[in-house]
């Protein structure tokens, strides 16, 4: 079971969290022209790396904050976690 350090609450076991996918995806700005391809890339296409992966987690059974995690998808090692407005 992963142990994830919530930037607000500290280390907690994985079962307090839910996963939120690739954190490198940036939702395009509202009201801004965007090509079909760029939009579809945002909605469907993923880099899906083996190794370092920045991803979102949500402390659902805790402070309910979303935050960022840098994790190795091959070993599950977590290098770092950060608040949304912080750099990983």
């Amino acid at each position: 079971m992963l142990e994830i350090k919530c930037p607000y609450c500290g280390k907690r076991s994985q079962n307090e969290f839910s996963y939120g996918g690739d954190a490198s995806l940036k939702r395009p700005q509202l009201e801004k022209e965007i090509s079909d391809k760029d939009w579809d890339d945002f909605v469907y296409f993923r880099s899906n790396p083996r190794g370092k992966h920045s991803e979102l987690w949500h402390h659902v059974a805790g402070c309910r904050q979303w935050f960022k995690v840098l994790r190795n998808t091959a070993t599950h090692e977590i290098f770092k976690t950060a608040k949304i407005n912080e750099e990983l």
């Binding site: 839910s18 939120g20 939702r27 979102l56 949500h58 659902v60 309910r64 904050q65 979303w66 949304i84 407005n85």
Partner: peptide
């Protein structure tokens, strides 16, 4: 709820 929290915290802080 998770959807709203996501947009408030991640997309439109």
């Amino acid at each position: 709820l998770a959807h709203l929290e996501y947009y408030l915290q991640v997309v439109w802080p």
